[in-house]
Nucleic acid binder design. Structure first.
Length: 117
DNA sequence: TGCTTGACATAAT
DNA sequence: CATTATGCCAAGC
């Protein structure tokens, strides 16, 4: 129904679905965006994000539950502060408990097939 | 048109 | 558990 626009935009759309107080990993975003083997592409897309976009790129972190390292240092602190502002708690090593804060995508009801639950 | 880089993930050591 | 090496695709020049 929606044409697969630029690879970036479909990633942005997924990131925009991340609720406040939750985080998602690049790999997860990649899968949700329909590109399971391109976690790098996700990060690359977010890097290409314009400043005033309404995409909460700050809620996207790596699989370690840690804020990704960027070319320009200092931004990590901003991202972390933003997440804390949303209720996300970082442990002593600057990592997030993914088991608790990893965003759980809304279950899209399969139109067919026995709904197991 | 073709080459290089890239906010990562995963497996192996 | 930490670090290293490889793989994946797309965008930019």
């Amino acid at each position: 129904v929606s044409a697969p626009q630029s690879g970036h935009q479909r990633i942005y759309r997924v990131v925009r679905q991340i609720p406040r107080g939750k985080v998602a990993t690049y790999g997860q975003i990649a899968v949700l965006a329909g590109i399971p083997r391109q976690p790098r592409q996700v990060g690359y897309a977010l890097f290409a994000l314009p400043g005033g976009s309404d995409v909460p790129w700050q809620r996207v972190i790596n699989a370690k539950g840690e804020v990704s390292r960027r070319s320009t240092p200092g931004v990590e602190g901003v991202q972390r502060a933003a997440l804390e502002s949303e209720g996300v708690v970082f442990d002593g090593r600057g990592r997030v408990d993914l088991a608790r804060y990893q965003w759980r995508p809304a279950p899209r009801r399969s139109s067919r097939g026995p709904v197991r639950w």
